[in-house]
Design a protein around this nucleic acid. Sequence first.
RNA 1: GCCGUUGUAGCUCAGUGGUAGAGCACUUCCUUGGUAAGGAAGAGGUCGUGAGUUCAAUUCUCAUCAACGGCUCCA
Length: 646
Amino acid sequence: MINVTLPDGAIRQYESGVSALDIAKSISEGLARKVLAASVNGQVWDATRAITTDVTLKLLTWDDNDGKSTFWHSSAHLMAEAIEAKYPGAKFWVGPAIDKGFYYDIDLGDRKISEEDLAELEKLMNGLAKKSNPYVRKEIAKAEALAYFTEKGDEYKLDLLSNLEDGAITFYTQGDFTDLCRGPHIPNTGFIKAIKLTSIAGAYWKGDEKNKMLTRVYGVTFPNQKELDEYLLMLEEAKKRDHRKLGKELGIYTMDDDVGQGLPLWMPNGTVIIEELEKLAKETEEAAGYQRVVTPHIAKESMYLTSGHLPYYADSMFPPMEMDGEKYYLKAMNCPHHHKIFAAEPKSYRDLPYRIAEYGTCYRYEQSGELFGLMRVRCLHMNDAHIYCSKEQFFQEFKAVNDLYLKYFKIFGIDKYVMRLSLHEPSKLGQKYVNEPELWKETEEMVRKVLIETNTPFVEVADEAAFYGPKIDVQIWSAIGREFTLATNQVDFNSGRKFKLAYTTQQNDTDTPLIIHRAPLGTHERFIGFLLEHYAGKFPVWLSPQQVKVLPISDKYLEYAQQVHQTLRSNGIRASVDDRNEKIGKKIREAELSRVPYMLVVGEKEMTEGKLAVRRQGKGDIGVLPVDEFVGLVRQEIGNRKDSDG
RNA sequence: GCCGUUGUAGCUCAGUGGUAGAGCACUUCCUUGGUAAGGAAGAGGUCGUGAGUUCAAUUCUCAUCAACGGCUCCA
């Protein structure tokens, strides 16, 4: 007999060789029908695998993340079975579960899968699923596994096998499909009730662009149709929040073939938002001791050789233009220009920290395939600043920047994000990273200390630092699930020396300042793209391009409407009058759709009483107010940068 | 940059080897209407661009540009 400890602490005794599924059955049949896998001593196992020692056991269902990913991984095998049936001789690379669903990378030879084929594959999969074929695990000797895939001529699985130890190799078979796989899997295919193959894409073998491109098929499955329907509905809803759609509908920005890829044109409504954000940044930075600077858009090659950008990042810069025998580059970042400002006048320790900020446009030659609405562009306004400080001041300064992020996030109600401490990869010193192992260690430790001492939750990621030092990136997600870095806070121990930046210490020595690169609002482009999705186009009043719309019931009240409009404008409120010859219902509908926060309906009653019938976007009629009172209310809401109507 | 899909009116989309259609938006007129679409008429496109096949191309083929879904990349 063995002892099985369950999550509630209860210890039950079973015969050795019992499976998690048997245990579930002993608890309840209903539970047994839901069990997808089991966590055995913290490891995810097949629910059907024999347990022969004392263990701690947790039964995993659809409600557990590990249960879901097992389900999706098994779904990938089911899809592979269907693909092998339809495309005999297809070779399979890997088919993992992902965040939402699964994919499988396949070499189809000369054949192609088209969108129409997906429906047919879904049908095949549904048929195979109904058979409720068990996923059978088999431990297999390496020699035998090698023989199996050599026979099959599958170089991909042979490649996987070459990295595996004998004794740690398992095959899984369901129906006619056998795959090299460490598992685990769900008990049988019958659990998979709803299937949607979502897309086809190319994917480099092993993620290396020098390798052959395989066909990747993405899909998602569910234990019932209802959840699939809900998922599809959610995708539809997400699409409505897509900043590219909203940006067009709300007149925020546009793109034009004649201007070029990744070069957004900011329309009047978008420009209002830019200016409000800059106002916020200026106020905040002024209060935090920053000074503003302005620098040119181009600079000579020599400066980028000094900065090290050319050897490390030439690929991301627009090619140079030649003038009088000199090469000039469009700036991809502001830092070198700012370093020159630091260097322009001698500095002493009394001048530090020296903080300079600029909202300048930068130009980056992003790969064409990577451009994405406002989120990834080739012309960007960075909310950039550089702080030059001593090592002693670093902690305080870096922390102040961190606090600045949090202050902004609060203003915008941003709560879903991840802070990533991005570290260097020692094996790439001298290639991707400046070759200063000691300084890397030291500065990484300094940054980590700030995060730990301020109790900021963060994750560490290797091999994602800037070439000149470690950084903190703030990660966010777009409405359709793509991941982006919103804000960034970087340490630079390299540029100070490269540019021979120096200050006189209190002891009358010379020292090199540490530099902090920071962009808490990231870029206008990405930040506004993010805000569009975050607010679903319903900006808080202070950011709204159009804050108030006056809607006269008919022409008879047009004059009064215009008076109100004047009053609003003279109070600094962005307002307009809908003076079209339309019914009030239509004016309201269109104002609602354009996301104007306040609508003022004015007719006979309002005109005689000098009042306004106020309507709030998304909320409807909120009552009648005297003009002055309404103006006061809106001015206050704008002044406070109130996040929403709350 | 790579793989795949798409490209028709300002927007959303239908359609065809014989030089194009809907709804919304737009313009004009009627209507002066109290909280999410009042009515009528009109105007608007050489079907992304270039070449080829054909008596004839928006439709078929190729190239090219762009967008989209991924991969790679991302200071």
